[in-house]
């Protein structure tokens, strides 16, 4: 059963990664990042059960805390950028290049 959970976790992680790469809306990209974090959490929880050790759950808990902080700051940045550029597309912010 552990294998199934881990494969599901890997699938969700890969889907999230592809989402980050193909979407242009910064908010959606953020959602995909959250999806990847959740996939990781699933793996942590699964391993905690596999090994009979609560540390995995603890790490998942910390991941959630950090993810919450990250979302707050990230969304604030998006709002600020949107306010000046009237766009939430990550492709529009490409001034730093060759």
């Amino acid at each position: 059963m552990t294998t199934h959970y881990l494969v599901l976790s890997a699938l969700l992680f890969a889907i999230g990664a592809v989402g980050v790469l193909v979407r242009r809306n910064a908010i959606v990209i953020f959602m995909c990042v959250e999806l990847m974090l959740n996939a990781c959490n699933l793996a942590f929880v699964t391993f905690a059960r596999q090994h009979g050790n609560l540390d995995g759950q603890l790490i998942a808990f910390f991941v959630m805390v950090v993810a919450a902080a990250e979302v707050v700051v990230g969304l604030a940045i998006i709002v600020t950028i949107f306010r000046t550029r009237r766009s939430a597309s990550v492709d529009d912010a490409n001034l730093l290049k060759y």
């Binding site: 294998t3 494969v7 699938l11 992680f13 890969a14 905690a48 059960r49 596999q50 009979g52 050790n53």
Partner: peptide, 23 residues
């Protein structure tokens, strides 16, 4: 993405998990 998922799945599939210890 597919390659990464396949790699992870391969890695997981290679491991023979014993019955989970449980918490």
């Amino acid at each position: 993405g597919l390659g990464f998922a396949a790699l992870l799945a391969l890695a997981i599939g290679n491991v023979a998990f014993v019955r989970p210890t449980g918490l």
